[in-house]
């Protein structure tokens, strides 16, 4: 178990190193940030001086090692556009995306898994067929279109909910959160719903497929033969047995949503990191892009690691050692 964790940490470090090189080289090849930093009318001297100040005159490999050295000291550089440390900039935007993503993924799991278990338990019922038909919609209708429809319906026509922004926030652990105020929650609802649709469909279908399979096994038959009630069978036997694929998908979806909530954040003008990265790409804010992509790689690795640990908790067969 401990060696397993040590192995995974070594792997993670290697992946991060490769990722840093890829990201740095990839981003280096895009555009020329000097054109963004200074106006076209400044003198050649100032231009050269700026290039030297940012180290852009050095060869690529030297720039990379300077970058790597700084990163190891927790310094991702300063944003060209905002003029503040990149890490601080990203961390200031991260809570907005984090709460949006968590709200979306958790509601998808809390609604999707029970719905899927029901649909798998009673595959012939009308409700199950409706659930499955809706899940196809969730898969196939594009996210941005659902977002627009949600705004048109609930914000424009019915005026029940706001169309964008984070609304009022309250402070917890020194960070501003929307979900702590009623107004903030009302702002959170639509974008979270929008992001949740696809995941909801995915969770439902996974839970249904797993349940259908498990219900046919001898494990369930034996539990029934012992007189155990159907609800206990579903809660204690089936849920435990289908949880491994669900946890895998939950982790992957959580990570990818955290990293790529761009479309929804743009539609609902949600001030998260998705919007930040789009803005940075447009303004060729190189340090922000590099740091963001590194952060995404880190988040994926961490979440996969946590998912791995969850496997050990969920499936005793993976734990080493025989009695």
């Amino acid at each position: 178990m401990l060696t397993h964790i040590a192995e995974r940490i070594l792997q993670a470090l290697a992946v991060m190193l490769v990722m840093s090189a890829l990201v740095f080289v990839g981003v280096y090849a895009i555009g020329n940030p000097i054109d963004v930093l200074i106006g076209p009318d400044v003198s050649q001297d100032i231009r050269l001086e700026t290039i030297a100040r940012y180290g852009l005159d050095k060869p690529l490999w030297e720039q990379y090692f300077t970058f790597l050295n700084r990163v190891l000291h927790g310094d991702f550089g300063r944003s060209f556009v905002f003029g503040m440390p990149v890490l601080q900039l990203i961390l200031s935007r991260l809570p907005a995306t984090l709460e949006l993503t968590l709200a979306a993924v958790l509601s998808a799991a809390l609604i999707g898994i029970p719905a899927g278990i029901y649909a798998g338990y009673r595959p012939e019922s009308a409700l199950s067929k409706t659930i499955m038909a809706l899940s196809i919609l969730g898969f196939s209708v594009p996210t941005f279109w659902i977002g627009l429809v949600l705004i048109m319906t609930f914000a424009v026509e019915l005026s029940w909910l706001p169309a964008g922004g984070r609304g009022e926030t309250a402070s917890l652990f020194g960070v501003e959160w929307s979900f702590l105020t009623l107004n903030g929650l009302s702002h959170l609802l639509l974008p979270a719903l929008n992001l949740a649709f696809f995941k909801l469909a995915l969770m439902t279908r996974l839970a249904r497929a797993g349940t259908r399979e498990i219900m046919l096994t001898d494990t369930v038959k034996f539990a029934r033969a012992a007189g155990i009630s159907e609800s206990v069978i579903l809660r204690r036997h089936v849920l435990r047995l289908i949880s491994i694929p669900l946890v895998t998908v939950f982790g992957l979806e959580f990570a990818s949503t955290l990293a790529f909530a761009v479309v929804t954040e743009t539609i609902f003008s949600w001030p998260g990191i998705g919007k930040l990265i789009i803005d940075s790409i447009q303004s060729l804010d190189r340090p922000v892009m590099v740091a963001y992509l590194m952060l995404v790689a880190f988040v994926f690795i961490m979440i996969n690691f946590l998912v791995d640990l969850t496997y050990f908790a969920l499936d005793p067969r993976l734990r080493k050692g025989r009695a």
């Binding site: 096994t217 001898d218 494990t219 038959k221 034996f222 539990a223 204690r236 499936d315 005793p316 067969r317």
Partner: peptide, 12 residues
């Protein structure tokens, strides 16, 4: 039943 590997729940 026949196969106790199939009848007992592996994760409990």
């Amino acid at each position: 039943f026949q196969d106790p590997l199939m009848t007992l729940n592996p994760v409990l």
